[in-house]
Design a protein around this nucleic acid. Sequence first.
DNA 1: TATCGTAGAGAACGATCGTTCTCCCCGGAA
DNA 2: TTCCGGGGAGAACGATCGTTCTCTACGATA
Lengths: 200, 200
Amino acid sequence: MTDHDDVRARILDAAEKLFYERGIQAVGMDRLRTAAGVSLKRLYATFPAKQDLVTAYLHRRDTRWRADLATYVDAHTPRDAPAPEAATARIRAVFDWLAAWFATPDYRGCAFLNAHGELGAVSPDIARAARAHKQALRSYLTDLVRPLGHPHPAQLAAQLALLIDGALTDAAVSGDPSAATTARTAVETLLAAPRPIPHP
Amino acid sequence: MTDHDDVRARILDAAEKLFYERGIQAVGMDRLRTAAGVSLKRLYATFPAKQDLVTAYLHRRDTRWRADLATYVDAHTPRDAPAPEAATARIRAVFDWLAAWFATPDYRGCAFLNAHGELGAVSPDIARAARAHKQALRSYLTDLVRPLGHPHPAQLAAQLALLIDGALTDAAVSGDPSAATTARTAVETLLAAPRPIPHP
DNA sequence: TATCGTAGAGAACGATCGTTCTCCCCGGAA
DNA sequence: TTCCGGGGAGAACGATCGTTCTCTACGATA
């Protein structure tokens, strides 16, 4: 039971590392088995097919990614500030977190956008996982934006989502982490402009 | 004009259609041969390896995509307007063009981002092609922005590039073409702001 | 007409993939 | 000790891939 869970975690760790850094189709089950240090029989007993492993990989990465983001944002929320300014700080924290991620040496873009670009047209499961991840991010952003008192929080959140996805892909393609600060500068303008919430 | 050029164009047409709508690794040389109506011998005489066909596909799509965009933008440039207003209209035209593209039934995202997500980690040629395409788009945007008299045209162009890439991917993943209008709304805000606001 | 070069159709080849099967070892129950 | 069952290592299998090769048909030329 603990044994089974430990094996499952080791497999998922190897899958996440390899799928993310090389792509899904580029890594075979044998390489995966070697990286996880598990026999093929155990591998297929845990995940009956590669597709199951791929969806499990995407699912775990989705929950962990969003939990990490929320943790960082919560840790960078000022405790003694009015709601709108706290919200602004939380939104800024999102892009600070992205900037730190982009500077990671093994950053290779958004796992869900990569998986969608690679197999979204062929595998409905992968397309659905990517859509769900982006939808969850967008609803989180809407929650972040709401305390601002903006007239159209969903609209502003959608704009933030565009900047985030643009920064994710630009940083991956160009290899330049500055996409995060570019996005952050644009966010400052968006937050300051339509319905001005004064900020020092 | 010659037979050879006609065959080459037919192969590239089939490759562009299939690679774009299914992904690169998902379409084999045999399916490609059938779609192009060409013998395998001719196919390999024209493109000695699949990799050559992939890079040729990306190269032709890059030039054609940017030419189509520039044509649309030029066609929607007011003739009797001062330079800054004309530049604003041209920037808006970019997003109108995107909106029309996203509404196409067979829209499947940016071919270069898809190719990069699929094979960018494994094939330096594909990674280079995607980087070159995005760089060319960014320098085009910089040219569009310059007549505005903005203090940092490259910075503003980078922000536009983020919104464009975000809209490209969001429209592809969600299947909702409204990403273009969301991006356009954000662009209006960015253009209306007096200048970018830096924050420590 | 006879010959030659070329191109089409598709079989063949080797590599690799996902998946299954075989063989062997070893620890615990009798 | 003997037997048994389960797990590990990896060979085997069938499918598919990119690429090459064979065989045949045909049109131009002498």
